[in-house]
Design a protein around this nucleic acid. Structure first.
Lengths: 344, 344
DNA sequence: CAAAAAATCGGGAACGATTGCGTAAATAAA
DNA sequence: TTTATTTACGCAATCGTTCCCGATTTTTTG
C-alpha cells in the first residue's frame, strides 16, 4: 500500500469546488466568500492537508530549504552550530540539508554541486581544510546562488561572513600562557591557508612579540587535516618533543588538535601542566571533566549558526541583489582551568 | 540576479530537439540513436545539467530523501549514527533531512507531520523520552509511510528495528561492577516506559539476582528527560547520597546521565572510584581522557545508522508491501577503565 | 518491389499548486 | 429600468520532467 497524501484536488472534488477556489481559500484570498473559506479550511484541517513541497518548489522556483556544508557533524563545534542554524531556519519556515566533507576537497565540490542544483535556495559553508581554490564556490555565487560563510571563511568571496575574533582568541590564550610563566610556547595549527589558521597564528605571534618572546620556527606545527587524524598530531608532537629545547606550553588552535594533544600526552605519560601546559580551542562541553581540567577558547557556536542563517535567509528573500555585506565578528570565551596553571 | 539552473528545455532548444528526446537521451533509452545520445550527453555535461528535484518529485511521487527524528544532534551517539545514515543514504542516491525533538513530544509530532507530508519518502526514528503514546507514528505507518526504528524503538510498531543488546550491555556492566567487589549498586536510568530504559534496567536487575544481591528500590533512579538537564541528575544523586546506606557504585544507563554523573561528582568532590565507582553508557570518544578514565558501554552507533538506513531504503523501494521485518540486535562494547577499578 | 517491421523522434498529457484572466450573478448607481 | 460595479468563482497556462501515443523515415522480409 502506497502512502498517498491528500491534495488540493481531493478537497476540490469532495466539496464540489475548483482547485483554484480551494487554493485561494487556503491562502485567505479576498476573492473568496467567508462561507467557502470556512468550509475549505475546516475540511483541509480534518484531512490534515499539507501543500506538496515538490509542486510548490516547481511553481515558485524555490524549495524553502537551505544547505549546510561542514567538515564533520560529529564535532562539538559544528553540531552546536547546526542547532543554531536549525532553530532559525525552522522558525522562518525553512528546512535544512546537512552535508559533510570530512575535510575532503572532492566531497566539498560534490556537495556544493548537489546543493546548488536546485535542491536548496542557498547555502552555509565552512570550507574544508583541503580546499585551497574556491572556484566551485565563487562561480556559483557569481551566478546568483546565495552563499554565506561562517567559521572558516573565504577571504576572496564578497558575501556575508560570520566568524569569531580568532586573532583575539589566540592572542588572549597565548598571553594567558605567558602571564602564567610559560615562555617556550609552541602552536599546533591547522593547514596554513585556512582563514582561521592564519588569524589564530597571527594572534599567537602578536602575543609573543608584545611580550618580547622570540618566535621559534620549530615551535610552529601545521597539521594538514586540522587534526582529523590522530597521526598528524602525533607526528607534530613527536617532532616537538625531540627538540633540544622542548616547549613548556602549547596553544592548540583547533578542536580536534586539542583533544588529540590530550590523547598524546596521556599515551606518552607527559604530565600536564607540569611538563607541558596547554590551552586550546574546544567546544566540548566536558572539558572541565578532563584530566587535568582543560583551559579552552570556546566559540559561540550556536550563536554563530543563528546569525549566519538569518543573514542567508535575508539574502535569499531579498528582492534586489545584496551589495552591502555584513562581516560579523563574535567574541570567543576564554576559560582558564588546570591545564594552564601558573608555573611554580 | 536570480540563480537559474539549466533545464531540459534549454538543451532541447539549443540542439533543435524536443524535450522528450532529450529526456530519453539522458536516460539512455533504446529509442534514441547513439548519435543523438552522444550529442545530448555531451552538451548536458558541458552545461552541468542536473534534473530538477522538485519536478522529479512531483512526477514520480517521491523525493529521494529520507528523514531522521532524533532527540539531539549535539550528542555523540546520535551524531555518529547520523554519519552512518548519511554514508548509506548518499551511496544509494538519497539525501537526508535531520530533525531533532530535544526530548519534546510536541516537537516529535510536529517533525513527524512535517516529514511525512511528502517531504521525504520514509523516516528513521529514535523516539523522544517524553513520548508515551505512538499514534502520531503508527497512524502514518499504517497508511503506508515507511518508518524504521533504531535505538529507542516502539515495541508495538511492527516494522524493522535496529538496536543494541541493551539487556546484555547492562548485564555485563553490572556484573563487572559486582566482580570488582561492589555490592551496593545504584542505577541512573531514563524514563520507565522507554524501550532502552526497560531493557537496560532488566539487565541490571538480572545481574544482581544472578549474584544474589538484593535489589533496593532506593537505588533505582529515573530521570524523566534522560539527563537532558543537569538538574534531573543532581536531584537523583542528592537523594542517593542522602541515604543511610549509600551506594558504592552506579550504573548510568545513558550518555547524558553518565556525563552529568561525572559532573556531579566533580562538583561535590566525590572521589571516583574510591567513594563511588561508575560504569555507564557513553559514545563520547574522549572518555579515556576524563578524570578518572571512564569505564563505558559503547554502542556501535555508526553501524546502527548504516543498517537502519539500508532497511529503510529497501522498504521504500520494495514493490510489494513488506511483511517480514528484521529485528537486528548489535552487540555493545564494554571498555573497562579506572572509574570502576577493583575495590581494595 | 511491395509490405511489414524496426528505428527515431515529436506532441501532449500529467504530477500539484498558483495565478492572470474571463464571466456569471448579485448588487449598486444612474 | 438600464447600466456599471462588485462579488465569487472557474478555466487554463505554467513550472520541469516523464511517458504514452503517434508519425515519419529507414530497414528488413517475403
Amino acid at each position: 500500500m502506497k502512502f498517498e497524501a491528500v491534495t488540493i484536488k481531493d478537497i476540490a472534488k469532495a466539496l464540489g469546488l475548483s482547485t483554484s477556489t480551494v487554493s485561494r481559500a487556503l491562502r485567505d484570498s479576498y476573492e473568496i466568500s467567508e462561507e467557502t473559506k470556512q468550509l475549505v479550511l475546516k475540511y483541509a484541517k480534518e484531512l490534515n492537508y499539507r501543500p506538496n513541497p515538490s509542486a510548490l518548489g516547481l511553481k515558485e522556483k524555490r524549495t524553502r530549504s537551505i544547505g549546510i556544508i561542514i567538515s564533520e557533524i560529529a564535532n562539538s563545534f559544528f553540531s552546536q552550530a547546526i542547532n543554531g542554524i536549525e532553530s532559525v531556519a525552522n522558525q522562518r519556515g525553512y528546512n535544512v540539508i546537512i552535508t559533510q566533507t570530512l575535510e575532503s576537497y572532492e566531497r566539498e565540490v560534490a556537495n556544493m554541486q548537489f546543493l546548488s542544483s536546485r535542491s536548496v535556495d542557498g547555502c552555509l559553508i565552512s570550507v574544508s581544510t583541503e580546499t585551497s581554490d574556491f572556484f566551485h564556490i565563487s562561480d556559483l555565487y557569481k551566478k546568483g546562488f546565495p552563499i554565506v560563510c561562517f567559521d572558516r571563511v573565504i577571504d576572496s568571496l564578497d558575501t556575508h561572513k560570520v566568524i569569531i575574533d580568532n586573532f583575539m582568541g589566540a592572542y588572549d590564550a597565548t598571553t594567558h600562557l605567558i602571564k602564567s610563566g610559560y615562555k617556550k610556547i609552541a602552536i599546533l595549527s591547522s593547514i596554513e591557508y585556512l582563514s582561521i589558521s592564519k588569524e589564530r597564528l597571527n594572534g599567537f605571534k602578536k602575543a609573543l612579540a608584545d611580550h618580547n618572546i622570540p618566535l621559534h620556527e620549530d615551535y610552529l606545527k601545521h597539521c594538514a587535516h586540522g587534526g582529523l587524524l590522530y597521526q598528524e598530531v602525533e607526528k607534530a608532537m613527536d617532532e616537538l618533543m625531540k627538540l633540544k629545547v622542548k616547549p613548556d606550553a602549547v596553544f592548540t588552535s583547533g578542536d580536534k588538535l586539542t583533544t588529540h594533544f590530550m590523547r598524546y600526552c596521556k599515551k606518552k605519560k607527559i604530565a600536564i601542566p607540569e611538563k607541558i601546559a596547554v590551552i586550546g580551542f574546544s567546544n566540548l562541553d566536558i572539558t572541565e571533566l578532563l584530566s587535568p581540567s582543560l583551559s579552552v577558547v570556546k566559540q559561540p557556536a550556536f550563536e554563530m549558526g543563528r546569525v549566519a542563517t538569518d543573514l542567508l535567509i535575508n539574502m535569499i528573500e531579498s528582492k534586489r541583489s545584496v551589495t552591502d555585506f555584513e562581516h560579523i565578528v563574535l567574541p570567543p570565551e576564554i576559560i582558564v582551568r588546570d591545564s594552564s596553571l601558573k608555573k611554580k
